[in-house]
């Protein structure tokens, strides 16, 4: 890890003037420190925002849910309102990482987590690190994308953002020009030649709040892992819907760990919209959701897995 200057700030206002291309905010540190230890990022200044008390809150009101960016995943998982009305988010937070990491990791930082691809994290100057080649594309790619969206086939690793997308959440982002509100679905974008990150936050900006509109009647998050706990998703699905008269309305289906970003399964949503979701329809929705997916050499399993998860999540949401 390169040496750096460490600056403690007391509130969010102090942060913005300090942010630039050579500095990084430090919140939970659970991804920033590994990235720095691996030499993938080497900021000259680390702005410790953890003491900014004005960014750590969960407020539920008629407008929905307001979550300060420094709220930890643990706080999210344990909050009674989140558990009751925004179940998919609480479940996604609970399924992420380990208890200690959830104690440390913040929702803002979780949105900004970089790819866990083993080439990106390893000794390879891969495309996502600014190189020429995505090594995973022709290398080992069992944990990689089945929806191809950029030269890089790493998947977006975080759990809660997929749930946030299903809940149509927005981010409040501040920068030198003031605040902007952006849907999570727009904030998370595949990397591009000019921007080799899985998000669109500018170096001089900070996520300050996540706003989740008033929740639908039901939501669920399903995550498949290759051990019982504490693993990145092999695939995940977040579903939110209003169940009225036994039918599903305003259905949102989001697929996680299948691409550079969580993916809305729009055709599958359309298929089940306003319907009584039978096991058969759920199965078909799974197939529809994966119709455009293409496996790489080592991840064929992700097709049946993600199909299964979509179908299971729809069955679960109908079962309440």
């Amino acid at each position: 890890m390169q040496p750096f200057i460490h600056i403690d700030v007391a509130n969010s206002e102090e942060v913005i003037p300090l942010l630039d291309a050579r500095s990084r905010p430090l919140a939970g540190g659970t991804d920033m420190l590994p990235l720095m230890k691996e030499g993938i990022v080497a900021p000259e200044r680390l702005i410790n925002i953890k003491r900014a008390g004005d960014l750590r809150y969960i407020r539920a009101d008629e407008d929905g849910l307001h979550i300060g960016a420094l709220t930890t995943l643990d706080e999210l998982d344990r909050h009674p309102d989140v558990r009751r009305d925004y179940t998919t988010l609480a479940q996604a937070a609970a399924e992420a990482a380990s208890p200690q990491l959830r104690n440390m990791a913040t929702l803002g930082g979780n949105l900004l987590q970089q790819a866990r691809c083993w080439y990106y994290r390893g000794d390879f100057h891969c495309w996502l690190k600014g190189g020429e080649l995505c090594h995973a594309r022709d290398g080992r790619n069992e944990y990689h994308a089945i929806f191809d969206q950029s030269p890089c086939v790493a998947v977006y690793p975080s759990d809660p953002p997929a749930a946030l997308m299903a809940l149509e959440a927005n981010l409040r982002i501040v920068g030198p020009q003031g605040a902007r509100l952006v849907p999570v679905a727009e904030f998370l974008q595949p990397p591009s030649a000019e921007r080799r990150t899985l998000h669109t936050l500018a170096p001089n900006e900070l996520i300050v709040e996540v706003h989740v509109p008033k929740g639908p009647s039901g939501s669920v998050y399903l995550k498949a892992m290759d051990r019982a706990t504490w693993a990145y998703a092999l695939a995940s699905v977040a579903v939110a819907a209003n169940i009225r008269d036994g039918r599903a309305h305003n259905v949102r289906i989001v697929l996680g760990a299948v691409s550079n970003r969580p993916i809305r399964a729009l055709a599958a949503e359309e298929l089940v919209e306003g319907q009584l979701i039978t096991p058969e329809l759920a199965r078909r929705a799974g197939e529809t959701a994966l119709a455009a997916a293409r496996a790489l050499e080592h991840n064929h399993y992700k097709l049946p897995l993600t199909r299964n998860l979509v179908a299971q999540a729809l069955r679960d949401i109908m079962a309440g």
Binding site: H6, L26, G29, P34, P99, M104
Partner: peptide, 13 residues
């Protein structure tokens, strides 16, 4: 009182 990984925590924090 909160359990954390000290390998991902800076002493200065």
């Amino acid at each position: 009182g909160v359990a954390v990984y000290s390998c991902l925590t800076l002493a200065v924090e």
